[in-house]
Design a protein around this nucleic acid. Structure first.
Lengths: 126, 126
DNA sequence: GCAATTACGCACCTTTTGGTGCCTATAGGT
DNA sequence: ACCTATAGGCACCAAAAGGTGCGTAATTGC
């Protein structure tokens, strides 16, 4: 079989990439890297996420073996989510990306302003 | 000012994260890491991308200072895209992710099969 | 005995994303 | 004279992502 290649749209590595190329996955997995968390805790930690997206993304991550869901079978419900070994190995790479975003967000902001100013200037003189 | 934090939906680091949490950005930037490429070369290299998405993503990456667009001003058009220093630092992290996807895609596949089989079993016995 | 809590499922609706076909301009090949 | 290659722009349409409100079940606190 051919070596997995993300540039091949028919390769399952591409599916894997699409799974992790989601802003919610990129926040949820790193959030779980310090230990298990409950639904409500994740909801509080991850600003702007809706209950629906959290549930949906967690289920998808669980389905792909990155997250383990532990239902305490109590009422009211108590469910904990934690990383699998696989999920943990991924979350390290994601944390790197998150930190990159934090470190360089101002660079991106500045570049965007320059680009837009430049673009405005061009259309004015055009 | 507060330190940039991707978990805060109002922080510009979140915008940065959303920019790079795109499957096309995660393929285009690494593709450019070995040197400049033309539109048509990228189109060939990145399986499944449409001309529209390539143009759109490249423009967005250029706007945010990650990619530099060099128009040779000839007819027929000759345009080259290359990474800025900023884009290069990001592409390293993205390459790590791409490689993770390639290395672990089969693990994800296996987990998905297990999950789905399990889920089918449960709904049958329910 | 009434309300709140918890972790969702479901249906409905809006917004965003992405695909496709058609257009441009000009040099070079046949 | 005509077709091709090049790097897109633009408009229209289909599909997917995401938000919101409503319901559920039993136990604990008031």
């Amino acid at each position: 079989m051919a070596a997995p290649n993300v540039y091949d749209s028919a390769c399952s590595a591409r599916d894997a990439l699409e799974l992790i190329a989601s802003k919610w996955a990129m926040l949820i997995l790193p959030a779980l890297s310090r230990g298990p968390m409950r639904n409500s805790a994740l909801l509080r930690k991850i600003g702007g996420i809706s209950q629906k997206m959290l549930t949906q993304t967690l289920k998808d991550l669980e389905r792909n073996g990155l997250v383990i869901r532990q239902d305490m079978q109590t009422v009211p419900p108590h469910v904990e989510y934690r990383l699998s070994a696989l999920g943990n190995s991924l979350s390290e790479a994601l944390i790197t990306l998150d930190r990159w975003a934090e470190r360089h967000s101002s660079d991106l902001d500045a570049a965007r302003e320059r680009f837009d100013a430049d673009h405005r200037a061009r259309t004015e003189t055009a």
